[in-house]
Structure formats: C-alpha cells, structure tokens
Amino acid sequence: MMKTFNLTHTDLNVSEIALGCMRISSLSEDQLEELIRCALDLGINFFDHADIYGTEPAFGQVLAKHPELRKQMIIQSKCDIVKQVNGGPRYDTTKDYIIGQAEQSIANLHCDYLDILLLHRPDPLMDPQEVAQAFQELHDRKLVRYFGVSNFPASKMRMLQKFIDQDLIVNQIQLSAVHALAIDESVFFNMTDDHAISRTDQILDYALENDLALQAWCPFQASWQDGTYLDNPKYPKLNAVLETLATKYQVTKSAIGAAWILRLPVKIQVIAGTTNPTHLKEIVDATKIELTRQEWYDIYTAQHHPLP
C-alpha cells in the first residue's frame, strides 16, 4: 500500500511517489491514460507539471474525457521559466505573468484549479511584494490552493516567506544517490574538499526546521552528461551495491534508489518521471522497504563520498 504524509498547513495527504509529467508528450492519448490510471491504481495521487514542459494539454485531454479522475488527484504545476524563440530561457516572476500562467495551466489541464503552484526557478529580478500580490489574487479567486517553490535555496525561501501570507509548503530539488549535494554540504562541513561547498544553502535543515516537504526530481540521474546511474558502466561500485540490496529486498535497483531518498528524516516525495507503467510499479516498491543505516551509507559511499 502506498505510503502517504500530510503537507503541513494543508489538508493534502500526498503519496510518497509522485508522477512527474515532463516526458509524457512521447505517449499517445491512450498510452497516457493507461499511465495515469496505473499511477492511481498504485496509490499515486500526486501529479507534477510545469508550463515549460508543454505537456499540460495532453494531460488535460485525458481529464476532459474523464473528469471524474480529477477528484483522485493532487495537481501541481510550476511557472516562471520563459522559453524564448532565440537564445536560452529567462525567468519572469511578475504578477501578471504568474497569474497568466496559472490561468493557462488550469485551462490546459481542464482541472478548474491547481492544488499547488510552484515558482520554478529563482529569478534575480523577483520582487517579493509582486509575487505576494499574485499569490493572494490566485488564492482569493480559488484558482490555486497552496504555493511553494522549486530549486530555491533556504535563504531565498526565508526571504520570500516574509512577504507572502500563504505558507510555502514544498521545495522541489534535484536529488539522487549521485547528485547528493544537499547531503554532502553537511557531511563534509568544515572540510577542504569540494563536497564541503554549500550548494543548497542547507535546504535539508531548513525543511526539518520548518516542517517543509521536499520533492526530489531526477531521482536516478547522475548528471546531465551521464544520464541515469542505473546500469551505467561509469558507476560500477554503486550498481553493485544496488544489485545486492535489490536481491535482498526482492525489488529492482530503481526501487532501492528511490528508497535511499525516502530514508532521509524529512518529509519527501520522489518525483518519478517514467512514462513506462512497469517501471512505475517498480519504483513504487520503494515505499514497501526501509533501508538500514548501514545500507543507506553503503549506497552513499559507493561512488564518490568517502566519509571524513
């Protein structure tokens, strides 16, 4: 049975595994419906979107055909990354842009309202008072129930929270057994190697201190260059440890990789970006096991994290 937890300051009871919808454009409408129904059958009630993904209309078509499914879902979307015709992206956290994108996401998704809206990336030009006005209007109009951020350091969350009336309830960060910067910075505190550099502003401590939920994106990714660490020949020691534990618990290595994240003493969701129902079922097996301390450290140190 899928494990769930309550998001603080909300009435939302969320599944530990969430379905990330960034890659669903590769699916036909029938395949997407099969994936959504598979997720719901597995106890996944949380669906993560972003306007920049361009996949909300496809998901919305399924909800337009089957509006009854909306009652089983917690739908989250993100905004502020602007894709430009020429050149790379930029960010926009102006009031009009946030409201306009939230309205567009709701229309695309055929969902009437968003349960959660996240700011996708920190914007150096962000005016927190303008963000506060946008959040308040969306909340007052009952278009968005709750708010959060993605890829924000603790300091910027603290600053933004000072200006807005709504509680920031989640922060979505990149986290995997290889991309473990949020963990490294504490383990290697006061050391001279690069792992000691604070790259997430102690976001794990901030989450625990404020009863904030974290969401781990790319939970099986090593790097943008290497892709997944699962069965990747560049990570033989890590995969050997994962294989041993997968055999012990009679699950797949992906389930062990997800269980490693869920073992952290913080409210956390694993954002599973797979479009394969079979793989999704394998990842969900992570909620059935709890790694021992030794097993967690065996995974952590298997690649490049020798403890001081």
Results as ranks from 00 to 15, higher is better:
4 T>I: 04
7 L>P: 04
9 H>L: 10
10 T>S: 12
12 L>F: 11
14 V>T: 07
15 S>P: 04
19 L>F: 02
23 R>F: 11
25 S>W: 11
27 L>Q: 12
28 S>H: 04
29 E>T: 13
30 D>G: 11
32 L>K: 06
33 E>Q: 09
35 L>T: 03
41 D>T: 14
45 N>L: 01
45 N>T: 10
48 D>P: 07
55 T>C: 09
61 Q>K: 15
63 L>P: 01
68 E>T: 09
69 L>T: 05
69 L>K: 07
87 G>M: 06
91 Y>W: 09
94 T>C: 10
104 Q>V: 03
106 I>E: 06
106 I>S: 09
114 L>K: 00
114 L>C: 02
115 D>A: 06
115 D>K: 01
117 L>C: 02
117 L>E: 00
121 R>F: 10
124 P>H: 00
125 L>H: 14
126 M>F: 04
126 M>D: 05
127 D>Q: 12
127 D>F: 06
128 P>A: 12
129 Q>P: 02
132 A>K: 09
136 Q>H: 15
138 L>N: 04
140 D>W: 01
144 V>R: 08
144 V>F: 08
145 R>L: 15
148 G>S: 10
149 V>K: 05
149 V>T: 15
155 S>A: 15
157 M>P: 09
166 Q>H: 15
169 I>F: 08
171 N>D: 15
171 N>Y: 12
183 I>C: 09
194 D>C: 05
200 T>A: 02
200 T>I: 00
201 D>W: 06
206 Y>F: 15
207 A>F: 07
214 L>C: 03
215 Q>V: 06
217 W>P: 00
221 Q>Y: 02
231 D>N: 15
238 L>H: 10
242 L>G: 10
243 E>G: 11
243 E>N: 13
249 Y>M: 07
253 K>N: 11
256 I>G: 03
256 I>K: 06
260 W>I: 11
261 I>N: 07
274 T>Q: 00
274 T>G: 01
277 P>W: 02
282 E>G: 00
288 K>M: 10
288 K>A: 13
293 R>N: 14
299 I>R: 04
302 A>K: 04
307 L>R: 14
